[in-house]
Amino acid sequence: MEEKSKIFLFIDDNITPVAELFAPVNFELDTSKLVDGKHLLKIVSKDPQGKEGVRLIPFEVRNGPSIAVEGIKENAIVDGKIPIMINAYGKGSQKNFLISGSESPQSIPFWIFILLILFIAWTIYYFTTSSAINLF
């Protein structure tokens, strides 16, 4: 009989493993039991000879409502009064998606205005040059 490696799964700094499994394994991590924020999944494997391998996987949990902020960015240098728009909405469950409140209104990016101005300028240029050809 072939001996298999044993896998121990730890979350953050817990000394008690979340699961003890034999390789190969499919595992479903339930993040709903974790608080929002940064976490660390530590995977320790022991082969039949007793040698250990460790893999650390940092991840971030966001089970709570999403928060969208328009008007200020992280680590921004600001001055005076700043209009800020904040929207928060829940995602619902994995079976039902909440459409109500899930879209945050946003201002139109400046590059859209630049593209619009360039398109209008090109249109005026095109009609001006093509009508000049028809006059002769």
Rank of each mutant, 00 (worst) to 15 (best):
I120Q: 12
F113I: 11
I117T: 11
N75Y: 14
K46C: 04
K38Y: 05
I84V: 15
V25F: 13
K51W: 09
N14A: 15
N63S: 13
M85G: 04
G50H: 08
K91Y: 12
I86P: 02
S45Q: 14
F59P: 05
G90M: 06
I82G: 06
V69Q: 03
V44Q: 11
S131L: 15
K46V: 11
A19T: 06
P24S: 10
V61K: 01
I112K: 10
F110H: 09
L98P: 06
L116W: 04
R62A: 02
S5V: 04
I84L: 12
L29F: 05
K81S: 13
I108L: 14
T31C: 06
E20K: 15
Y89S: 13
T129C: 01
E74C: 01
V44S: 03
F27A: 02
L115K: 13
I120P: 00
M1C: 09
W122L: 15
G101C: 06
G53R: 08
E74Y: 06
A76I: 02
E2G: 04
S131V: 11
A132F: 12
D36N: 11
F59V: 07
Q94M: 09
L34H: 00
I57E: 09
S107I: 14
L115T: 03
G80E: 04
S5Y: 02
T123I: 13
P17S: 07
Y125S: 08
P83K: 09
T31E: 03
Y126R: 10
I112S: 03
W111Q: 12
D30V: 03
F127A: 07
F97Q: 08
